[in-house]
């Protein structure tokens, strides 16, 4: 027995070192390498300053409005921007790009939509903003205060925006806008008693948020 024990003591240090190294390696792999592998980044066509626009126009609805049929306009089209941006305003490079490349050529800006949901999802702004009386911030976060457009990250496999899964690899969230998965919609719907009408789950039926 004593010989066996002596052998163990000799190998013990190595085993612990090996374990620590492996642990560190897997942590690096999981928290740094894997997200890099899974998500790719794209820059917006040019920087957009929400804060400065808020100072000028005052409210979200000035640019992101409801159409007469109740549908939501989403990101403004060139036609709306042109009212103010016929000529270069201010001195930023982004303004120059916008006017010279897009306004002058009547080209729509190919904005990348952070909050874009997958094709199978139906989302009604009117249900949330008009009927539900929710604020934009509740889901979109303090985007109105941002001065720069962050890079758009998307999942290489699914092509979905990273905002859906959220920044946290574990899918954890602190704020309601940290994650936009089905469970997040369902959680809020449950709390507010929205259409818990499914025969299968007694929760929201599939055809509330799906198409």
């Amino acid at each position: 027995m004593s010989t066996v024990k002596a052998k163990d003591d000799g190998a013990g240090g190595f085993i612990i070192l090996f374990f620590i190294l492996g642990f560190v390696a897997s942590m690096i792999l999981g928290w740094i390498v894997f997200p890099k592998l899974l998500y790719s980044q794209k820059e917006q066509p040019f920087n957009f300053d929400h804060a400065i626009h808020m100072d000028m126009v005052g409210a979200c609805e000035s640019c992101h409005f409801f159409r007469d049929d109740g549908t939501f306009s989403g990101i403004p089209k060139l036609a709306q921007c042109i009212d103010c941006h016929q000529d270069v305003q201010g001195f930023t490079k982004d303004e120059e790009i916008f006017v010279n490349e897009y306004v002058r050529n009547y080209r729509e800006v190919p904005w990348l939509i952070y909050s874009e949901q997958p094709d199978c999802v139906y989302f009604s702004h009117s249900a949330h903003v008009l009927s539900g009386g929710m604020e934009c911030k509740t889901c979109h976060g303090p985007i109105a205060e941002t001065e720069t457009s962050r890079p758009y990250e998307y999942n290489r496999i699914t092509g979905y925006s990273r905002d859906i899964w959220g920044k946290s690899m574990l899918g954890l969230k602190k704020n309601p806008w940290d994650r936009m998965k089905m469970d997040d919609c369902a959680e809020c719907h449950r709390e507010n008693g929205v259409k818990q009408n499914s025969a299968q789950t007694h929760k929201g039926a599939c055809f509330v948020c799906h198409k």
């Binding site: 199978c120 009408n197 499914s198 025969a199 299968q200 039926a205 599939c206 055809f207 799906h210």
Partner: peptide, 30 residues
């Protein structure tokens, strides 16, 4: 009570019956 032939058999809850509209849904991604 919404126990249509197809809805209850789906193993992954991809099809559902809504008491609100009476429509049997099918979720293709599920």
């Amino acid at each position: 009570h919404g126990h249509s032939p197809c809805v209850s058999v789906c193993p992954a809850t991809a099809t559902d019956y809504s008491y609100d509209t009476g429509i049997v849904s099918q979720i293709y991604t599920r």
